[in-house]
Nucleic acid binder design. Structure first.
Lengths: 228, 228
DNA sequence: CTTAACACGTGAGCC
DNA sequence: TGGCTCACGTGTTAA
């Protein structure tokens, strides 16, 4: 069956499944009232019945609407870091932030695919932040002047931060180098680890750029390392 | 200032900024009632005043709460593809889906960073789907047996789908090849383009695997292409 | 006229 | 106790 573009799947699903189970029978609900007047009943009966049942339908519809909204809110709760007991407004604020972050992240990942080292020093540190599912990964990219002890320096830094490299990609060109490293953090990982890592990489870059500038030699050094 | 773990930023922000500007003065609101009894007023005055002002405070607090929730919902509306006039439930359903998609996407991107060709034929097609911001990109990865005319085949396929390669990464090993291609689609791009692309890549793989199996030769072919 | 969606004010419950 | 969140039923509005 074809559906219009803005077709409200959510709502029509509800109707389609026919979940119209009222919590109490409509007719009974009025007759169990103990203070009604028998004379009034006859004249008001049909009018009242219509009004009452309309109200009940309305009431139930509204209840279902609330249920739908809340069920989605609860789904969102499970998609966010822990805190399942958080109020609606704050939950939505977090969701907004999360959608923004994820969007930025994917485009960042896409962008930094250009693996050739650039002329400018660059650092990128980002994680997939897979809050719920356990497989947290960090992607670190550093682009700088190449030098003898850059790799040992990098290894030492990562070791001290308790980050295990899962995969390392090195591309060097004209005396400059770009390292892209996928890291698996230790269990004592916190959000600050990313900042520490970033700082550590910054200081590595500074150590590189403060050295002597002999491009020819560096290139030869690189070839030597590849040969090993 | 340190804060407890479940600290409700959203709510306390509200308090902190002191946004308690009621729309009308509390004291006036009672005195403008035209049907009060002067004798009752004295005895009921303070009790009524308290009750009324409590109700007003409650009412206003609830109004602010609704405003906060709705403002976040509106922010979410702007983060999703177009449709700014969509009901709350469907909006939230879309948000749930979007968060799930984005999470899956980032982890997928992370995973397929292993660029060495694998033993199994593989196809990955995914886009950053940057709905609001215009820069839509598609990342396609194909891993299969190498052959003479694979690249021309690929180029022809992409051209017919009106997809422009922004960056191509080729890694070959042992007669097998992996191509990772970042593509910029034409303006007449639809969600089905991804499926078309996927099918097209599948048929390319089938053409590869149906050929003769001479690994030695393929490796030489590969070396030849690199030399050019 | 129906039907859904929404905003509103209120009672209840929770620190 | 107050201050806040939440669920609820209702009146209103738009398709």
């Amino acid at each position: 069956m074809l559906q219009p573009e803005n077709y409200n799947l959510d709502y029509y699903h509800y109707i389609a499944t026919g979940e119209y189970n009222l919590d109490f029978p409509v007719t009974k609900s009025y007759s169990t009232c103990s203070f009604y007047n028998p004379q009034e009943e006859e004249e008001d009966d049909e009018a009242n019945n219509i009004a009452v049942s309309k109200n009940i339908i309305h009431k139930e519809a509204e209840r279902r609407r609330r249920e739908r909204i809340n069920s989605h809110l609860n789904q969102l709760r499970t998609l966010l870091p822990a805190n399942s007991k958080i109020d609606k407004a704050s939950l939505l604020a977090k969701v907004v932030q999360r959608v923004r972050d994820l969007k930025e992240q994917t485009s960042k990942i896409m962008q930094c695919e250009t693996n050739f080292p650039s002329e400018n020093d660059e650092i990128t540190v980002l994680s997939n932040d897979s809050s719920a599912d356990g497989k947290l990964l960090i992607k670190a990219s550093i682009c700088c002047e190449d030098r003898f002890d850059l790799i040992p320096d990098l290894i030492q830094t990562l070791k001290s931060l308790r980050l295990s490299p899962m995969r390392v990609e090195m591309v060097s060109l004209g005396g400059r180098i770009r390292n892209v490293i996928i890291l698996a953090p230790d269990k004592d990982y916190t959000n600050k680890s990313l900042l520490f890592l970033r700082d550590a990489l910054m200081s590595i870059i500074q150590r590189s750029s403060s050295g002597t500038d002999q491009r020819g030699k560096r290139r030869r050094v690189l070839d030597q390392r590849i040969a090993n």
